[in-house]
Nucleic acid binder design. Structure first.
Lengths: 118, 118
DNA sequence: ATGATAGTTAAGCATGTACTTAAGTGTTGG
DNA sequence: CCAACACTTAAGTACATGCTTAACTATCAT
């Protein structure tokens, strides 16, 4: 879905949120644990977590008064795949270009070759 | 660099800009060619191109009155790698967790096993 | 019950983003 | 020269974002 990618890439565009994702990649953490290394207020942390949760990059569950957050791999993988798919497009194009240039060098049609370079 | 990733992910968070990247993945294009399938004004297109160029996702060159744009692979690869690196972190963690659970199942310490599942 | 803990909600503010229209610059073809 | 062309710049508007402080709720320990 288009809007899901919008939200995922937007979520990753903020360094604070990337730091949270980085932390959660190593394992689940509570809101306070995520906030501890950061210099912003707790409400700001919670707002970032909402952004990450709204795009499905993390999930969270509250037990008692403690909310524990964890990575939800699918959303990040979708973003990674979007880039990867485009990379394959342009890499194939560059490969074809390289092939063409090799062929043109090995068997020129119009003008006689100048011999091998070097 | 941190700010470069900020800009790259932000650039990708807009569907119009992703459409431009998609188009350019298939090969270079002029500003007008990029604008043609879009429903927004030309200045808006140029603003999007500036965002993409400022983060190094594309480069462009003007010849005469025509500006030609092309993908610049490095910035996108850096973004892809950021996600990929975190994915490896959590995948390793999940693997270790799976190993632990397998071991606990195969050689339980406290309570006797229930035999093989299935 | 009392107070500390962990998080939540609400309101407001400064800045940033995406878009528009209008007008301008430099290039090319007749 | 002159008009069409391909952008480019400027100015303005509407809305989104990231942050703050203040006040609130719910849970846990004593």
């Amino acid at each position: 879905m288009q809007a899901a990618l919008d939200r995922t890439f937007h979520a990753l565009s903020d360094p604070t949120r990337r730091a949270m994702v980085q932390r959660l990649s190593r394992g689940p953490a509570t809101v306070s644990e995520l906030a501890r290394p950061l210099t912003i207020s707790l409400p700001a942390v919670v707002q970032h977590l909402q952004v990450l949760e709204n795009c499905g990059v993390i999930r969270s569950e509250k037990v008692g008064r403690v909310r524990t957050c964890a990575i939800e791999p699918n959303a990040l993988s979708a973003a990674e795949r979007w880039i990867s798919d485009r990379r394959q497009l342009w890499e194939r194009r560059l490969d074809r270009l390289a092939d063409f240039l090799d062929d043109a060098d090995a068997a020129p049609r119009k003008s006689p070759g100048k011999g091998e370079p070097g």
